[in-house]
Simulated assay, not measured.
Amino acid sequence: MTMPLGQTVSVEIGHKFQDLGLTVGADAQIALEESAASDAGAGGADQPIAGYEVVNVFAEYKPRKMENLTVRAEINNLFDETYAARGTYGQEFAVVVPLYEPGRSVKLMATLNF
């Protein structure tokens, strides 16, 4: 038995404001609906796997006077999409409840290199 991953598209974009020490960016993962059922004799897959779109954004700041400091803010799953990542086993079976990924999450990090 295998996990039917189907077709996925990933897009990333970023821009660095050199004078400000600021980098902003985003990425998106788009998984298209997978409707090809696997062989019924290999486990009886009986339902399509829904598609999803997930968008993440970030901003990262490195002050000029403290080049060893980085402050980063991220918002993952910006639109609070309910989805199970394509690599999650069992989504093609009606009797299996998939393990969903976390909803929108916000992360603030500070890193000091020395």
Results as ranks from 00 to 15, higher is better:
Asn76Thr: 09
Glu81Arg: 13
Pro102Asn: 04
Tyr83Cys: 05
Ser105Gln: 11
Gln7Ala: 08
Pro98Ala: 08
Gln47Phe: 03
Val55Thr: 14
Glu12Arg: 11
Glu101Trp: 03
Asp19Cys: 02
Gly6Lys: 02
Thr23Pro: 03
Glu34Gly: 08
Phe114Tyr: 14
Lys65Ser: 07
Phe58Met: 10
Gly25His: 08
Thr8Ile: 04
His15Phe: 14
Ile49Asp: 00
Lys107Pro: 06
Val54His: 02
Val55Ala: 07
Gln47His: 09
Lys65Phe: 13
Glu92His: 09
Gly43Ser: 12
Asn113Ala: 09
Glu81Ile: 07
Asp39Cys: 02
Ile75Asp: 02
Asp27His: 03
Val55Arg: 01
Ala31Val: 15
Phe17Asn: 03
Glu34Ser: 05
Ala59Tyr: 10
Pro4Trp: 01
Thr88Arg: 11
Met1Ile: 08
Val11Leu: 10
Phe17Arg: 06
Tyr100Gln: 04
Ile49Asn: 02
Tyr61Asn: 07
Lys107Gly: 10
Lys16Phe: 11
Tyr89Asp: 13
Glu53Ala: 13
Val95Phe: 04
Pro63Leu: 08
Tyr61Trp: 15
Asp46Met: 07
Ala26Gly: 13
Gly21Met: 05
Glu74Leu: 12
Leu32Lys: 05
Pro102Arg: 05
Gly51Tyr: 11
Gln7Asn: 06
Gly14Val: 02
Asp39Tyr: 03
Ala40Cys: 04
Thr2Arg: 04
Lys62Gly: 01
Val9Lys: 01
Asp19Trp: 00
Asp19Thr: 06
Thr70Met: 04
Pro48Tyr: 00
Val95Cys: 07
Ser10Cys: 10
Gln47Cys: 01
Pro4Met: 07
Gly25Leu: 08
Met109Tyr: 05
Ser35Lys: 11
Thr23Lys: 15
